[in-house]
Amino acid sequence: MRTVAVGVPAAVLGGTVSLVSPAEARSGTGSMATGGYEPPVCAPGSGTIIQWGPYNAPAVPEAGLSGVTAISDGACANLYNLMLKDGRVTLWGNLNLNDRNQQRLSRVPVAATKDVTAIATGGSYAFALRDGGVIVWGGTYDNQLSLPEAAKSGVTAITGANGGNSYGLFLKDGGVIQWNGYVAVPDEAKEGIVAMSARKHALALREDGRVITWGPDLPANLTVPAEAQSGVTAVSAGAGFSLALKNGAVIAWGGNDYGQLEVPYEAQSDVVAISAGVWASMALTASGKIVTWAYNFYGQLDIPAEAHCGASAISCGYVCMVLL
Rank of each mutant, 00 (worst) to 15 (best):
V12I: 07
G36T: 15
Q268R: 15
V68P: 00
V12R: 07
S21V: 13
A204T: 08
Q268S: 11
V291C: 14
A252H: 12
P44I: 11
N247R: 06
Q102P: 09
A286G: 10
S124Y: 11
D131I: 00
G67I: 00
V224T: 12
A280N: 15
S146D: 08
A126W: 08
R26P: 00
C309M: 05
G35P: 02
A63T: 14
V155D: 06
N256T: 14
I49K: 05
K190F: 03
L105I: 09
G53D: 08
V110T: 09
S46K: 13
A57N: 14
Y265V: 14
A220P: 04
N101G: 08
A220S: 15
L145N: 04
N78Y: 08
N101R: 11
W92C: 01
A252T: 12
K246C: 04
A204E: 05
D99Y: 02
D99L: 00
N296M: 03
G160K: 08
S166F: 07
Y265A: 13
G139K: 12
R88W: 00
A10I: 01
G35T: 13
K246W: 03
Q144C: 02
Q268G: 10
A307E: 01
A294G: 08
A128M: 04
D187H: 05
Q300W: 05
L169Y: 13
G248K: 10
V319G: 15
A283S: 12
L261S: 05
Y80Q: 03
L169N: 12
K190Q: 11
G174I: 07
N81F: 00
M282V: 12
W279F: 09
S27P: 01
A237K: 06
G67Q: 03
S46Y: 04
S27F: 06
G45H: 10
G209W: 03
P219N: 06
